[in-house]
Amino acid sequence: EDYYQILGVPRNASQKEIKKAYYQLAKKYHPDTNKDDPKAKEKFSQLAEAYEVLSDEVKRKQYDA
């Protein structure tokens, strides 16, 4: 799945936009606030993985290549 789609940001998003999108979605899908939703944990880990790659310039360049 596309990391940009997961975070809901365009491919040319700035680091600030990526961070903002991640924090909004992380708050929304955090397992502690969605105890009754088994998919929230999965969504949250996808968000974390996408953010880890896109927030790191080197990893992001490799991902975009």
Rank of each mutant, 00 (worst) to 15 (best):
L25I: 06
Q15L: 14
V9N: 00
A40Q: 08
Y22R: 01
K39A: 14
Y4G: 00
H30S: 10
S55K: 09
E52K: 08
Q46Y: 09
A21G: 04
H30R: 06
L25S: 06
K35E: 08
K35C: 09
Y51A: 03
S55T: 05
K19R: 14
R60G: 01
Y51V: 03
E42P: 04
I18H: 00
K39L: 13
K28G: 07
A21P: 01
A48P: 02
I6G: 01
S45F: 13
V53A: 03
Q24T: 13
E52C: 08
S14D: 09
P31H: 08
I6F: 05
E49L: 11
Y29H: 08
Q46I: 10
L7A: 00
E52P: 02
Y63F: 04
A13R: 00
K39N: 14
L47E: 01
K27V: 15
D64E: 04
L47A: 05
K43D: 04
P38I: 10
A48I: 14
T33R: 12
A50F: 01
K61Q: 11
L25A: 09
D32P: 07
F44E: 04
G8P: 00
E17Y: 06
F44T: 04
K27I: 15
K35G: 10
D37V: 06
Y3W: 06
Q46K: 13
D64R: 01
Y29K: 04
L54F: 01
L25P: 01
L7Y: 00
A21Q: 06
Y63L: 03
I6V: 11
D37G: 05
K28P: 04
D36E: 13
D32R: 08
D36K: 10
N12P: 02
N12E: 06
K61I: 05
Q24V: 11
Q5P: 01
K27M: 12
K41R: 15
Y29N: 06
Q62P: 01
Y3Q: 01
L54W: 01
E49W: 07
K16N: 15
N12D: 13
N34Q: 08
T33A: 12
K39F: 12
Y23R: 13
Y4M: 00
K16T: 15
K39H: 14
A50V: 06
S45A: 14
Q5S: 12
Y4R: 01
P10L: 08
Y63S: 02
E57F: 06
D32G: 12
L47G: 03
K39T: 13
E42F: 12
Q15F: 14
R60S: 01
K59I: 03
